[in-house]
Simulated assay, not measured.
Amino acid sequence: MTKSLEHTEIARDQSAVDAAVEREYRRHRMLRGRDLLLAILTPVALLALWELAAAFGAIDARLFTPPSEIVERGWDMIAGGELWVHVVATVGRLAAGFVLGAVAGVLVGLVMGVSRPLRAAFGPTFTALYALPKIAILPLLLLIFGLTETPKVLSVAISVFFVVQINTLAGIVQIDGRILEAARAYQASGWKLFRYVLLPGATPSIMTGLRVSAGMAVIVVTAVEFVASNNGLGYLIWNSWQLFQPQTMFVGLITVSIIGAVVTGLIIVLERALLPWQHSGGPRKKGKEQ
């Protein structure tokens, strides 16, 4: 009889837990749906407000071109192929510079992280160079390489390098010493220590560096194209301002922002693939825990 009562109590407690988990799961889904809805409706509402303000004369439509006219101008540029020329030029420079700077930043950061003498020798120098505005290096690069693609790519690569290098180094240095002691106790050294302890421990910081440097890379490539290019979205924006073509200028600005969002989104997808445990939060519906 006592055992039967105990089983009944256990079943009742389990049912209560299951019900609580189900309620939390539904609440979590509702909040995610609300967040997604707000993320979509907010820019739509702002664009509608912009359109209405221009239509009723609250803002100068000659300076703040209504979204409908921007879309029309953008479609004409896409159909005519003009926009693609500038997009391809910017994306090519951005991709080449980002990959070059990211790879170099990760490698240098890892080497400095595992070598105290190198960290002491180059740490202050890299800290000082990081504070230097990257666009200020462009004139020197132009003197060395001339008006070619190399200075534009290197400007992006340098801006990405320092951000990724600093974050990679921080990721290595901040690894808990007890973890390293445990790894060495299990005879982990050399490549095994690097592959299974140091690199996984530094990966979250590396991904943070890549996310931050992505936005900086878009800024730098656009600024470089302002002054040292005859194509690209930066050139398009600057030339449109000089010719007082606000529709075209807004098309360029929006395209740059879209490219920045896409690059950041790709890095987030990569981060989710490499660090799935950091994005597995939130309650799960019963039966999906397996």
Rank of each mutant, 00 (worst) to 15 (best):
residue 70 I to T: 13
residue 203 T to N: 00
residue 71 V to M: 12
residue 254 I to Y: 05
residue 276 P to N: 07
residue 36 L to F: 07
residue 77 M to I: 01
residue 185 A to T: 12
residue 206 I to Y: 02
residue 23 R to G: 00
residue 67 P to F: 10
residue 221 V to W: 12
residue 37 L to M: 11
residue 155 S to R: 12
residue 189 S to P: 01
residue 285 K to T: 00
residue 123 G to W: 11
residue 211 R to W: 03
residue 10 I to R: 12
residue 42 T to P: 00
residue 217 A to Q: 13
residue 72 E to S: 14
residue 286 K to G: 01
residue 224 V to R: 11
residue 171 G to F: 06
residue 179 I to T: 11
residue 216 M to I: 15
residue 263 V to N: 06
residue 3 K to I: 09
residue 12 R to Q: 13
residue 287 G to Y: 03
residue 184 R to Q: 14
residue 106 V to K: 08
residue 267 I to N: 07
residue 283 P to E: 02
residue 112 M to K: 11
residue 153 V to S: 09
residue 183 A to T: 08
residue 134 K to C: 07
residue 57 G to E: 12
residue 237 I to F: 11
residue 247 Q to G: 14
residue 265 G to L: 06
residue 199 L to M: 13
residue 169 L to V: 08
residue 271 E to H: 03
residue 98 F to C: 07
residue 27 R to A: 05
residue 188 A to K: 07
residue 259 I to F: 06
residue 211 R to Y: 02
residue 14 Q to P: 00
residue 206 I to M: 15
residue 259 I to C: 10
residue 188 A to G: 05
residue 288 K to A: 03
residue 161 F to H: 13
residue 11 A to M: 04
residue 211 R to H: 05
residue 167 N to W: 09
residue 239 N to G: 00
residue 127 T to E: 15
residue 48 A to Y: 04
residue 110 L to M: 14
residue 181 E to D: 14
residue 95 A to M: 13
residue 253 L to M: 15
residue 19 A to D: 09
residue 192 K to Y: 06
residue 146 G to M: 08
residue 251 V to G: 07
residue 232 G to F: 05
residue 238 W to E: 10
residue 37 L to H: 01
residue 16 A to Y: 01
residue 290 Q to R: 11
residue 63 L to F: 14
residue 212 V to T: 15
residue 52 L to G: 02
residue 268 I to T: 10
residue 9 E to Y: 12
residue 267 I to E: 06
residue 135 I to R: 14
residue 210 L to H: 06
residue 143 L to E: 06
residue 205 S to Q: 10
residue 72 E to V: 04
residue 14 Q to E: 09
residue 263 V to Y: 07
residue 288 K to F: 03
residue 144 I to F: 15
residue 87 V to N: 08
residue 235 Y to L: 00
residue 235 Y to A: 01
residue 80 G to V: 02
residue 243 L to P: 00
residue 209 G to N: 07
residue 196 Y to V: 05
residue 42 T to W: 04
residue 146 G to Y: 12
residue 275 L to C: 05
residue 264 T to H: 09
residue 151 P to F: 10
residue 73 R to E: 13
residue 16 A to L: 10
residue 126 F to E: 11
residue 267 I to R: 07
residue 199 L to Q: 03
residue 32 R to Q: 12
residue 15 S to I: 04
residue 17 V to C: 00
residue 127 T to M: 12
residue 76 D to P: 00
residue 192 K to R: 15
residue 119 R to L: 05
residue 60 D to N: 15
residue 255 T to H: 04
residue 57 G to L: 04
residue 84 W to H: 03
residue 140 L to Q: 08
residue 3 K to E: 13
residue 19 A to W: 01
residue 270 L to E: 03
residue 268 I to R: 12
residue 92 G to S: 15
residue 5 L to E: 14
residue 185 A to S: 14
residue 177 G to C: 01
residue 113 G to P: 11
residue 68 S to D: 05
residue 60 D to Y: 07
residue 165 Q to A: 14
residue 201 G to N: 03
residue 188 A to D: 04
residue 244 F to I: 11
residue 83 L to S: 02
residue 59 I to M: 04
